[in-house]
């Protein structure tokens, strides 16, 4: 732990490019991603065509936006099991406010952000206030939100699915930002892919080049020691939870606008995928170590694998097995590379 955490001395010291590369937490994930890309490209020509790439980048991008935020939180030493359900909450708020209360769509999106940020702050506050494991606290919010999403949706609109977002004024402009497509090399790509890159870049910059980033690593590495040297552990933790919520808001809004409707059960069970993506990308479950780029690549691996299995034409009854096996392979190769890198660094 903390081998790469950026203390001033290490950053100033001259290290060869090659060695710096090896020391990166995301290196294993990069190699895993390349292997999986080659593997599925070999199995199916569509996989590496423009249409194929656009298609597997699509699920990778939504998972990626979440995984990057989740990785930041994990580096800070916490989990958020409510991350998946918050996607549903965010989308439902946007949907209900626009279609039922006829609020202008951008205003609904803003309200949704405020509400979801409040949920994140609530998570963070409870965690720092009680000192209980975030695992338990966010499991509780996960369950509560699951009930709220369903209960409130049914209470307000008397059904479990908000539809008709497409017909509301302002939809086109909101869709252009969150859920449109852009053309590259004659192929349409989802705009979420660009947002994914942007989120990853932003998170990387925050983690590597800001004080908040340093505090994040420090908080996750050793909470007490950080507190003793004056790191604002509490506010850092709360902000990290709010970052995850912001990502959930973004993805939830994207889905509501893209599908034109939102189901009350949206997002349940997806939180684990985000954590998995972050771990594939080199985050430690214990905190203090990891990278945003790694998490983004973890999401890429997940996207490639889930779609690659379909392109390869494997029997879909075995889908989950193959998915699990591929992920295991990715993590193992990741671990192998990381260990090799660590020993070479010493030698």
């Amino acid at each position: 732990m903390g081998a790469v955490s950026a203390t001033a001395d290490e950053r100033v010291a001259k290290v060869s490019v090659f060695r710096r590369l090896l020391m990166k937490p995301e290196l294993g994930a990069v190699i895993g991603a390349i292997l999986i890309f080659l593997f599925f490209s070999f199995l199916s020509p569509v996989f590496h065509s423009a249409a194929g790439i656009a298609n597997w980048l699509d699920p990778a991008s939504t998972i990626g936006i979440m995984a990057v935020a989740v990785a930041m939180l994990m580096i800070g030493g916490h989990f958020d099991l409510s991350a998946g359900v918050q996607i549903g909450s965010a989308g439902l708020i946007v949907g209900i406010l626009t279609t039922h209360f006829h609020l202008f769509i951008w205003a609904s999106i803003a309200v949704s952000l405020v509400v979801v940020l409040a949920i994140g702050a609530f998570n963070g506050y409870l965690v720092v206030r009680t000192g209980l494991p975030s695992f338990i606290i966010t499991l509780a919010t996960f369950l509560m939100l699951q009930g709220l999403n369903l209960g409130l949706t049914k209470l307000i609109i008397n059904t479990v699915q908000v539809g008709g977002i497409r017909e509301e004024p302002g939809y086109d402009s909101a869709k252009a930002v969150f859920a449109s497509q852009f053309t590259l090399f004659g192929q349409e790509f989802q705009i979420t892919i660009l947002w994914w890159i942007l989120w990853t870049a932003l998170a990387t910059w925050i983690l590597m080049h800001t004080r908040f980033g340093n505090w994040t690593f420090a908080t996750g590495g050793d909470r007490n020691a950080s507190r003793n040297v004056g790191v604002p552990v509490k506010s850092t933790t709360i902000k990290l939870f709010m970052i995850v919520s912001a990502a959930a808001w973004f993805v939830g809004t994207t889905e509501a606008l893209r599908l034109g409707s939102m189901q009350a059960n949206a997002g349940f069970g997806r939180e684990l995928i985000f954590i998995v993506a972050a771990v594939i990308g080199g985050c430690l479950l214990t905190g203090g170590y990891g990278s945003a780029i790694g998490a983004a690549i973890g999401a890429l691996i997940f996207g490639m694998t889930s779609q690659g299995i379909v392109y390869a034409g494997w029997d879909s009854d075995w889908f989950k097995f193959f998915l699990g096996a591929m992920l295991l392979l990715a993590v193992l190769s990741n671990e192998y590379v990381r260990r090799r890198a660590a020993t070479q660094k010493k030698g």
Partner: peptide
Amino acid sequence: NNDLTGAQATIKS
């Protein structure tokens, strides 16, 4: 069923 955009990508694949 809980990941509709993912399902969309899978059907497209």
